[in-house]
């Protein structure tokens, strides 16, 4: 009885203790995030001029938003195509990284070396190194499957499969996969490491108990590995969605960066906010799906 009472007070106490835990982050959030984004919102409605005395702002209303949405014809199709890219990019990256993570978690000779190799993409993606690698002519032809001298050219095989009566959607999916295998590996570095860490929190005792009950490896994967991995898997899903949106090779991001570089901050901020709204909507939908799936579980 006494124990129960203590728990109750503990949970009630929890409420305000939580605020102490998040306090440093909240201070930082106000200073390093909220204040700058307020400035950015103001920026998207104002024309900023650099004067000798500093900056001067003059209100121009929704002019930049009109520019971005209706006058510039590239932006809307670019945004739509980056949503379309998600539909095949995300499942491919997730399945691939889960597959690799499960393999890397198995016990075999040389797995430490392999883990080091699969760590390399994390170092290079998004940074200067990737820029240098992709900027280099020889290395580049290797990476773009569609490039002239690519070693992963498979068009004739695609025709063969199409002629043998397999629906086009499936073959395009397969060949997107094969053509983009380089990009795929380099995009899933973080997901692989995340899932690997998730796999290692699963107790081996569970697998032992399951094998004593006569479960096969396949059953163990679906009944133990996947459900336990669910939080990390949903994390990887969210990360993949966001990563494919804010990747610097994305055409919308390119427009944002280039208009900021040409000191057109109004356009850049407006496009950023439009794009941000789209990303927020998509990520919101992803969260809804995740929550629903976790309730059904």
């Amino acid at each position: 009885m006494a124990k129960k009472k203590k728990f109750k007070s503990y949970y009630r106490r929890k409420e305000y203790i939580g605020i102490w835990f998040v306090l440093p982050w909240v201070i930082g959030l106000a200073y390093f995030f909220i204040y700058p984004i307020v400035f950015s919102i103001v920026n998207s409605f104002c024309q900023m001029d650099v004067t000798p005395a500093g900056y001067s702002f003059s209100f121009v209303g929704a002019k930049y938003y009109k520019n971005v949405l209706f006058i510039d014809q590239r932006n809307l199709p670019n945004i739509l195509s980056s949503i379309g890219n998600l539909l095949y990019n995300v499942p491919m990256v997730l399945i691939f990284s889960l597959f690799v993570a499960v393999i890397l978690n198995q016990k075999f000779k040389g797995r430490i070396l392999l883990r080091a190799i699969f760590f390399l993409p994390i170092i290079t993606t998004g940074g200067v190194v990737m820029k240098i690698i992709t900027g280099d002519g020889v290395a580049q032809s290797m990476m773009n499957g569609t490039g002239g001298t690519a070693i992963f050219q498979v068009t004739s095989m695609e025709e063969m499969l199409l002629n043998s009566g397999i629906p086009q959607e499936i073959t395009t999916f397969i060949f997107q996969f094969i053509n983009n295998i380089f990009g795929l590996i380099w995009k899933s570095g973080i997901q692989i490491l995340l899932l690997l860490a998730g796999l290692q929190t699963i107790s081996p005792a569970m697998y032992e108990a399951a094998s004593i009950d006569g479960a096969t490896g396949w059953e163990k994967f679906w009944k133990i590995t996947l459900p336990t991995l669910y939080p990390v898997l949903s994390l990887a899903l969210v990360y993949t969605v966001i990563d494919s949106f804010v990747d610097t090779t994305n055409p919308v991001m390119n427009t944002i960066i280039s208009s900021a570089q040409s000191l057109n901050f109004g356009n850049s901020s407006a496009l950023c906010w439009v794009y941000f709204t789209v990303i927020a909507l998509v990520v919101g939908i992803v969260f809804l799906i995740i929550n629903k799936a976790s309730k059904n579980r």
Binding site: F33, I37, N43, F245, M253, I256, I257, C272, Y275, V283
Partner: peptide, 15 residues
């Protein structure tokens, strides 16, 4: 979630 999905280009100048 907003900090995760906000492109850093948007806040770098005020920052």
């Amino acid at each position: 979630i907003a900090t995760i999905i906000m492109p850093p280009q948007n806040i770098i100048i005020p920052l």
